[in-house]
Computed example of a mutant assay.
Amino acid sequence: MKDLVSKLDIEENGATMNSFNPEKLVEMYDATGELGLYLIFDNQLHFGYWDKNNPNASLSEAAARLTQIMIDKSKILQGERFCDLGCGVGVPAIQIAKAKECFVDGITISKYQYDKGKKLAEEAGMSDRVRFIQSNALAIPCDDATYDGGWFLESIYHMGHRQALREAYRILKPGATLLIADLITGPNTSEEFKTFAREQLHSDHIPKEDYPELLDEARFDLIEIDDITESMMPFMVPKVKAGFKQYEAQILQYVQREVMDNWLRVFESVCENLGYILVRAKKRVCP
């Protein structure tokens, strides 16, 4: 792991980085875009979902499947307002806006993601329904109780769970559904990996057992926690390898092969150390 940390080349002056440092998070995601990694995910920078119905799906196809699972779990209705807290370049935001005929605000702290999201929404003819806001997701520029629903799709671990849930409670209307797709710690998670995740990936991961108390503290009622680790982690590394091979020529226009190898090691470490859950909760009508 130490070799991986040194090779990632995302340290600055040897300083230890805070996992919730907004500036460093921006640097990481802006750089990720510039490295061409969005190619292998087809602009959906989140994990994929595989089961007996799609065992041979590519990484981008399986990522779209996970987005659809999240959409299916959402209770958002036609014409209502939805918030994607940590939206990436906005593909899931565009997809839920299309599927549910709702209005979506995508929140990203990254200028690269903000610009790319706006472009993709325009290309999809969805600029009237999908809006992007460049902002820290812990301080969204909106009134209290603005949104009818929302989700954290692989983003809450960058923000701190308590702080993120507190802001989600503020912006959602009473009774609104909140969805969370989260990478979680488990028995196989090493302390070395936790340190690496905080300092280099700006992520702080928690066990799924913490969720009931955290949600209750934030005044959400837990509806379900679905552990889908086995439909994701065994597949991710082979699919990432295949994606890198497919888009090798394009990615090598941006970076040297060593960078691709280092990112593959990151995925290997994540899959070895973390699990994956989907959480559905509801904001309490009476605090």
Rank of each mutant, 00 (worst) to 15 (best):
H205P: 04
C142R: 14
A197P: 08
P174E: 07
L178I: 11
E213R: 13
H161W: 12
T195E: 12
L179M: 08
I180M: 12
C142Y: 10
D144T: 14
I223S: 06
F132C: 00
P187M: 04
T189K: 12
K194G: 04
A176N: 04
A181V: 05
W151Y: 11
F193I: 07
G125F: 05
Q163K: 15
T189E: 07
A145D: 11
A145E: 14
E167S: 10
A197G: 05
I225L: 05
F196C: 07
D216I: 00
I133Q: 08
G175P: 07
E224S: 14
Y211G: 02
F193Q: 09
F132T: 00
T195H: 15
I180D: 03
I225N: 06
A145W: 03
E217Q: 15
R162Q: 10
S203F: 03
R131C: 07
R131Q: 13
F152M: 06
Y211I: 02
I156S: 14
R129N: 05
G175F: 06
Q163T: 04
Y157F: 15
D144H: 14
K173P: 04
T177D: 14
S135N: 09
G186S: 12
F132W: 02
E199G: 01
A181E: 01
L165W: 07
A218P: 02
G186L: 05
S203P: 01
Y169H: 15
D182H: 14
R129A: 03
D221S: 09
D128C: 00
Y147L: 06
I171G: 03
E199S: 11
Y211S: 03
E154M: 02
E191C: 00
F220V: 03
R219G: 00
I156G: 11
I184H: 11
R162G: 09
D210N: 15
E217V: 08
Y147V: 03
Q200E: 00
P212E: 01
R170D: 01
S127L: 01
D226A: 11
N188Q: 14
D144S: 15
D216N: 15
E192W: 05
E199N: 15
D227N: 15
L138E: 13
E209R: 15
D216Y: 13
P174G: 07
I206W: 12
D204Q: 14
I225K: 10
A124R: 10
A145V: 03
T177L: 13
A168S: 10
C142F: 08
P174A: 09
P207Y: 12
M126V: 02
I225F: 08
N136F: 08
T177P: 12
Y211V: 01
K173Q: 13
H158Q: 09
M159T: 02
A164W: 08
M126E: 12
K208F: 04
S190Y: 09
I140T: 03
D143K: 15
D128N: 12
T177F: 13
